[in-house]
Nucleic acid binder design. Structure first.
Lengths: 212, 212
DNA sequence: AGCTCATCTTGACAATGCTTAGATCGAACC
DNA sequence: GGTTCGATCTAAGCATTGTCAAGATGAGCT
């Protein structure tokens, strides 16, 4: 499977790298027509190949979606890393990670949808499906550790706090996707302030457990 | 539109109450084959009518799903109310509400899926779609008010805390739907303990905001 | 050159959402 | 009571989708 394609090279094989082309085509379809329009045939059409061609690169429609999902989690991971200063105060880091998470979901709603829809459909191959988000998750975990309020030897407590934070961010991302919260946003002066307001509660995870 | 159907009466009209029958059929299909198998045709088949019959009771497939969603939110509301003692300590009430929410999602994963999928698809009619969950949401809100730690005149703060809690529960419900958390559950001694562990962080919302 | 095999196309099948045209039958009106 | 009306249901069909089997194509090795 050699791919001699400098810029738009001499099409070495039948196509060169159809798998890559299909993923790009899928991305374009998603961006243009949304997740409900993501069909194998539409992707093939967009890539300029026959409807059956994708089956030589993806066993299933769900395998295509899984591949999209993996790239999406990579992008999410990058964005979260860029958005949080690793040397800054841990509290701000956790909040920044959460905000980045939700902003990514808002900026790429279709990709975000695919990321989680395929996790759901692919109960058969959980390892492959869930490995994709490990990078992003570990970023959050590190920040939570640096927060230091959770006793680090109590691994269970730490994990629970991380899961709670991740769930809250995920839940907010979903809600923001289809609810408006307009009046609340207006009262707080913008969407970013609103997101930060909700997510500020995330930073309190673990802290309040030290209550009397 | 009279429905003279005492027990399984003389079929007064063409069917009697096909709308009701379709919703029941949909419920059966969901329970038996999952949300991906929920098609208008399958529901019609299950109800014993022609594939086009449902269109006289639901404009769309999404309108069928919306109707299912509404009933689902009613059930959820009932379950949450039953699970939380209105006279108990507010802190436990919030936790109980959260646990009930997630347990409902676990017990009826297909219905839960429809509830949120149709919210997403029906951006056109947000009022009708979102009104369904108002009952359940207000239950949480009351408990959060009774918690009292959020200054009640600061309506915005209260709303933010409620949204954060709701998002966390929703996020956990989604995660639990397709992730296992097996090792963690084992360490904590059961699923319920695990859920309570994650959700205990919800009760800390607002509290930690009073930090120095 | 000739063989091989991955790649891609053609053509097909079943299922789905949805529409249009027609059949059916309760009910209201004369 | 008979007729008309209109809501309800069926029949038939269209476009689209996921998927598969059979054949064409052509790159790369011997």
């Amino acid at each position: 499977m050699k791919l001699t394609c400098p810029i738009t090279g001499p099409k070495p094989y039948h196509h060169g790298d159809l798998r890559r082309a299909l993923l790009d085509a899928a991305s374009r379809v998603l961006e243009r027509e949304g997740p409900t329009a993501l069909s194998l045939r539409a992707v093939a059409r967009e890539a300029g190949v026959s409807p059956a061609a994708p089956y030589h690169h993806f066993k299933d429609k769900s395998e295509l979606m899984l591949a999209i999902s993996e790239e999406g989690f990579d992008q999410l991971y990058d964005f979260m890393r860029q958005s949080s200063d690793p040397d800054g105060p841990p509290m701000e880091r956790v909040a920044a990670i959460g905000v980045a998470y939700v902003e990514f979901a808002k900026a790429h709603p279709s990709i975000y949808r695919v990321m989680y829809d395929c996790s759901r459909d692919l109960e058969a191959l959980p390892d492959k499906a869930h490995k994709a988000e490990d990078g992003a998750y570990s970023l959050l975990k590190k920040a939570m550790i640096d927060l230091g309020v959770v006793s680090s030897d109590q691994e269970v407590d730490l994990e629970l706090a991380c899961i709670a934070a991740w769930c809250a961010a995920h839940g907010l991302a979903e809600m923001v996707g289809f609810r408006q919260f307009d009046s609340l946003k207006a009262k707080m002066g913008g969407e970013k302030a609103f997101l930060a307001g909700v997510l500020s509660h995330l930073g309190t995870f673990g802290q309040a457990r030290n209550r009397g």
